[in-house]
Simulated scan of single mutants.
Amino acid sequence: MTNRGWQEIVGVVGIFGMAVVVVTIVVWNMAATWRARAILARDYEYRTLAEKAVNDQAVIRESLAGINGRLAEVETRMHSVERILKEIE
């Protein structure tokens, strides 16, 4: 082979190597971008779920406050009924 033949082979191998490196870097960066987007989507879903849980807890707290008020009223009535029954005996 002549010197020019070796130069062409080395050039082709070098260009092929550079192409492989460039493609690898592009694929690596695209994968990192996809992972970042997936993490952001997951974080958004967690944030939405947490906000829903907080809102649901507030509704439950209000319901429990109402139930406690009614229970206190029932206890008061029951005590008065017990007192009346004791007076009747």
Rank of each mutant, 00 (worst) to 15 (best):
21 V>P: 04
75 E>V: 05
84 I>W: 06
77 R>M: 03
89 E>R: 15
29 N>V: 02
27 V>N: 07
42 R>S: 07
65 A>C: 03
35 R>E: 11
59 V>C: 01
27 V>A: 12
81 V>N: 11
77 R>F: 04
31 A>G: 04
27 V>Y: 06
47 R>C: 02
20 V>Q: 07
3 N>D: 09
88 I>P: 00
72 A>R: 11
78 M>V: 12
85 L>N: 13
56 D>E: 15
13 V>F: 14
76 T>D: 15
13 V>N: 14
52 K>D: 12
68 N>H: 05
74 V>K: 06
73 E>Y: 02
55 N>K: 09
11 G>Q: 08
87 E>R: 13
72 A>P: 00
36 A>R: 00
3 N>V: 05
76 T>Q: 13
39 I>K: 07
76 T>Y: 10
5 G>R: 08
25 I>M: 13
14 G>S: 14
41 A>L: 01
11 G>W: 03
57 Q>G: 08
58 A>F: 00
53 A>R: 05
38 A>T: 03
53 A>K: 08
73 E>A: 09
48 T>I: 06
36 A>S: 02
47 R>P: 00
3 N>W: 06
31 A>D: 10
88 I>G: 07
77 R>H: 05
11 G>A: 08
75 E>Q: 07
50 A>R: 06
14 G>P: 02
64 L>H: 04
42 R>V: 01
34 W>S: 11
37 R>I: 07
55 N>I: 02
35 R>V: 08
22 V>H: 02
15 I>S: 11
13 V>Y: 12
10 V>E: 13
26 V>S: 04
44 Y>I: 06
73 E>D: 12
6 W>Y: 09
11 G>P: 00
69 G>R: 04
30 M>I: 12
36 A>N: 00
59 V>W: 03
56 D>P: 00
11 G>F: 08
48 T>P: 00
48 T>Q: 10
34 W>K: 15
19 A>G: 13
75 E>N: 12
85 L>G: 06
4 R>W: 07
15 I>D: 09
88 I>E: 12
24 T>E: 04
21 V>N: 05
63 S>I: 11
39 I>E: 05
76 T>F: 11
33 T>Q: 10
26 V>N: 03
23 V>P: 01
84 I>P: 00
75 E>R: 09
33 T>V: 13
11 G>I: 00
37 R>G: 04
75 E>T: 06
19 A>W: 02
68 N>F: 08
56 D>C: 01
28 W>L: 07
2 T>G: 14
42 R>I: 01
52 K>C: 02
18 M>L: 13
51 E>I: 05
74 V>E: 10
13 V>L: 15
